[in-house]
Design a protein around this nucleic acid. Sequence first.
DNA 1: ATTTTATTTCGTAATCATTCCTATTTACAA
DNA 2: TTGTAAATAGGAATGATTACGAAATAAAAT
Lengths: 142, 142
Amino acid sequence: MGNNLNQYKDKLRKNKLKVTEKRMRMIETLLEGDRYMSAKDIQEILKPEYPGMSYDTIYRNLYTLKDIEVLEQTTLSGEMHYKIACTTHHHHHFICDDCGETKVIRYCPVETWQSELEDVEIKNHKIELYGLCGACKEARIY
Amino acid sequence: MGNNLNQYKDKLRKNKLKVTEKRMRMIETLLEGDRYMSAKDIQEILKPEYPGMSYDTIYRNLYTLKDIEVLEQTTLSGEMHYKIACTTHHHHHFICDDCGETKVIRYCPVETWQSELEDVEIKNHKIELYGLCGACKEARIY
DNA sequence: ATTTTATTTCGTAATCATTCCTATTTACAA
DNA sequence: TTGTAAATAGGAATGATTACGAAATAAAAT
């Protein structure tokens, strides 16, 4: 794989976290998926390799990886989902309702909103677009 | 109260739903609160009046009222929250992390995003700003 | 190579939001 | 006023998530 797993190893080490096999496979799984995945999704995918992988491990690692900003999280239909975070530029996502694929959206008017609401202090914001990606739009039968 | 509860009664009847005491008190509670509230919030507030009000009733009514667009919903820290919907114009919210007060934001660049992502079909979107409202910002001790 | 420390297991249990089930009650139409 | 369809109470069930604690394992530091 030409995936730059080293940057993730470095990040783990920088945070005094150990580079374990399971952790790396979770990161790889999320890199390969490149969409929001639930704890169960990840367990399913890694089941052949690690049949006895405990939920405890998955949840703990998802939490840890989100904490060091390797992952970003969002709630999709009641379940927490995670995906690899992109740290190079601020962005949000379009999420396909059918296949779960995500697309990056760049435009973010947070300054516009800050000036619309002068008296408040915006500390955080969530933007998500939902719908059908090109492929799923084609595949739809009406 | 000068609150126009009649429009809500009409809306219920239009949808062949019964105008019950509990339903109307839930609507009143949400009107008075005018912020996102959880099922538990509502149960707490109505407890003196209806000590035995069942969760089923609360959840079913929240769902029903969202369904007929009397309420809008969002997930806040893992819990579903509801507030009275404004149907006259499209908008989103700023939500105060401290007191839960909401402020309407008008600017919504959904067309901009649609042209940024030509191939997808945006069917839905979620925009939420979080932070401190004017009052809570003042009240903060640093 | 040895030690130290973090991580995983594993089984189980607690928690919490939400939903489901059935008997009973209520709103409202006829 | 009566019939019936909808709504509710009360509690059990579900499902995601977190917690736990001790033993086993693995990673990294010396």
